[in-house]
Amino acid sequence: MNALAHSAATHAAADHHGFLSPSGVEIVFVLVGLVTLGAALATVTTKQLVHAALWLVVALGGVAVEYLLLTAEFIAWVQVLIYVGSVVVLILFGLMLTRAPIGRSPDADSGNRWAALAVSVAAAATLVTVVVDAFRATWIDLADPAGPGSGSSEVTGTALFRHWVLPFEALSVLLLAALVGAIVLSRRDGDRDLPPARTRAGER
């Protein structure tokens, strides 16, 4: 990682110097990326389930910062709102509903941890090699010649409601279906015969 960052930095130093002090953005990006990665690693390795959820908050927040650094501010706020705001809360609720133990649980990892480690390290090595090899000399021009940031709410909203209306509406239907599905799944099965069941429960 350091070597990669170093090589990238030397590349940056060699080729591009100019707008918006790119090396500064890069440094921040790398730092935040390191925090994000560390939080993610803690999420998947900690023995305490609630801590894992909290580390996930950190990781998702780091990703939101990365979005900001990539000038996608609307996405970043959506990330904060939905992920950090709702998904993590949902997960915490799930942990509580499944009576997850507070404190260290020694069996948080399953038996095939080492196999998982090997697979993921190998995947990481392969993918990093390929990605670095492919985008070694590619640069993102973060400077926006046309006024406000390309990821601002206005730009994103325009694109979304001009070009992506139909998928957006389809997505709303999907969300509705997910909502209904979650309700159906969460209900105790067989609620069709609810009144007699209730009377029977009352008798007991």
Partner: peptide
């Protein structure tokens, strides 16, 4: 019956294929 084992095997296989392709 362990889904994680299946998934691990699946990923290993696809990884191997990817490496070969690369």
């Amino acid at each position: 019956g362990n889904v994680q084992t299946y998934l691990g095997a699946l990923l290993t296989g696809s990884l191997a294929l990817a490496v070969i392709a690369v």
